[in-house]
């Protein structure tokens, strides 16, 4: 899933301070699952913003709405009935959602209320970890299902650097060395030989090196 984290309140408050009527839009997909922008977070943020404005001695009108998915125009269309009553839109979706709204409602300012972080997996309740950088050319098949691009601090493709100790990365003792994991996994799979093959320099075009990426499924497109 795409993970996100609420922006500091101060930043959000600065964004919306010129406006009296705010449409606060959550998303029931990834940001709900990572507890950054679902109905509950929308409610909390609305409450916090209310408290702030009341303290300033003014009232703002915050309309809370959580869409099924903010990155689909059809769902974003649901805001039509609310849009006129808002001076600005505050989105708690990932960057994709914010941009979908911005594209649809060009006349209204749209502000992000969360920082979109990474594509991650949940490790345990309340902890999400990065697992994929969308490099567009998946190596997992030869690295034992562990991605060196996303999980090695130096994106090394040919093995661990010299900074590994006790299976941990040199950057922090709580970060696993991806290559140690890969190696253990390859051993367990009896695929040690894989390691000895030199992985050639990576073609970064599919990773975005060639500009904004696009997937076209002609069989599906209308």
């Amino acid at each position: 899933m795409i993970t996100a984290e609420q922006k500091p309140l101060k930043e959000i408050i600065e964004y919306i301070s010129p406006y009296d009527r705010i449409l606060l839009v959550g998303c029931n997909e990834c940001v709900t699952v990572c507890a950054a922008g679902g109905r509950k977070e929308v409610g909390l943020l609305a409450s916090a913003l209310n408290l702030h404005s009341l303290k300033q001695g003014r009232t703002i009108d915050i309309k809370e709405i959580t869409l099924e998915r903010q990155c689909d125009p059809e769902y974003v269309e649901e805001l039509v009935s609310e849009i006129d009553r808002a001076d600005a839109i505050l989105s708690m979706a990932c960057g994709c959602g914010v941009q979908t709204i911005a594209e649809r409602y060009k006349e209204k300012p749209v502000f992000p209320a969360v920082n979109t972080k990474f594509m991650g997996a949940s490790q345990s309740q309340g902890i999400w970890v990065e697992r994929c950088q969308g490099c567009g050319d998946c190596l997992l098949g030869i690295t034992g299902g562990i991605c060196p691009v996303a999980r090695c601090s130096k994106h090394l493709l040919n093995g661990p650097c010299g900074g590994t100790s006790d299976g941990k990365c040199e950057i922090a003792p709580d970060v696993d060395c991806a290559w140690c994991l890969i190696w253990e996994r390859l051993k367990a799979l009896g695929m040690e030989k894989r390691y000895e093959e030199i992985m050639e320099a990576k073609d970064f075009r599919p990773a975005g090196g060639g500009g904004p990426r696009k997937i076209i499924r002609e069989d599906l497109s209308l």
Binding site: N158, G159, P160, C161, G162, T164, G167, E184
Partner: peptide, 20 residues
């Protein structure tokens, strides 16, 4: 080459890779 970093058994293989 760092002969002491983990995993130890990989150290020689990695050296081999560099030579290769």
């Amino acid at each position: 080459a760092n002969p002491f970093a983990d995993p130890f058994e990989l150290r020689v293989m990695r050296l081999a890779k560099k030579i290769k």
